[in-house]
Amino acid sequence: MASESSLSPRFFVLEKGVLSSHYDVGLEKAEPVNRADAPRCPQCGDIIGLLTWLPPYRVKLELYGEELGDFIDGVGYELLVSERFVEAFRAEGLTGLEGFHPVDVVRVRRMTKKKREPLTVPSYFVVWPCFGRAAVDLVLNRVRVSSPPTCTECRATGIDATHGFVLEPGTWAGEDIFRPRGMQGKVVVSERFKHFVERHRLTNMRLTPTEEFVRDPSNLGPAPLPTT
């Protein structure tokens, strides 16, 4: 799809590193697992997320790679980040994350049989990307949906395939990491966040420009471009 103007802000989808990578790790929440109600749209009342994880924050990790990284994708809408990530994030004044609660890593199991050096387990914190004001562009996205969104606030809909998306100009409120309206299941970050990750060499983070982000498990292809 055509990229935005070079003068427009650039955004990236944040995901964990690829499978079989140096930092490949699986996560399981350890009992007791307490949950609160899922978030709802303030306008239409529809559910726009998963059940919220409540304390105690306890996890079991399964390490398939060589070492534990600075970022672990949670089971749900939460993320785990290392102490050095938290310190750098706060020091540089980045915005968009909520929580910052310490996590108790009750077990780390190595899933490979090769003999390894002693493992260093970072201190982790659980965070939640905020629900931002930025909204996906309903016209320019190459996104196939099961039905058009009916709520102008959350813009929630079933997404069948994504072949790139852009954010509607003027809707972004400046957060560095957030979940956009119309695509709350994805974590989107600013260009400043991208430079922050690169500068501090934070590990196990994959950043894809939103206009290049593709998820099409059923091979449906991109939605047709709008006609003029």
Rank of each mutant, 00 (worst) to 15 (best):
F71H: 10
F71T: 05
D73Q: 11
D73F: 11
G74I: 01
G74A: 04
V75M: 13
V75N: 11
V75S: 11
V75T: 06
G76D: 05
G76L: 11
G76M: 04
Y77M: 15
E78S: 09
L79H: 12
L80G: 02
L80E: 03
V81Y: 03
V81A: 02
S82G: 10
S82T: 03
E83V: 01
F85I: 05
V86K: 15
V86P: 04
E87V: 01
E87R: 12
R90M: 15
A91R: 08
A91Q: 08
A91T: 03
A91S: 13
E92T: 14
E92G: 07
G93E: 13
G93A: 11
L94S: 11
L94M: 13
L94I: 04
T95G: 05
T95K: 14
T95D: 09
G96W: 12
G96S: 06
G96D: 05
E98K: 05
G99D: 03
G99Y: 05
G99S: 08
H101P: 07
P102I: 03
D104N: 08
V105R: 09
V106T: 05
R107D: 14
T112I: 06
T112L: 08
T112D: 13
K113P: 00
K113H: 10
R116F: 13
R116I: 06
P118Q: 06
L119K: 02
V121W: 02
V121N: 01
P122W: 06
P122A: 08
S123Y: 00
S123R: 12
F125E: 00
V126Q: 01
V126P: 04
V127D: 05
P129Y: 10
P129S: 07
P129K: 02
P129E: 05
C130R: 12
C130F: 07
F131H: 03
F131R: 07
G132M: 06
R133D: 14
R133I: 00
A134V: 00
A134E: 02
V136H: 10
V136M: 13
V139H: 12
V139D: 14
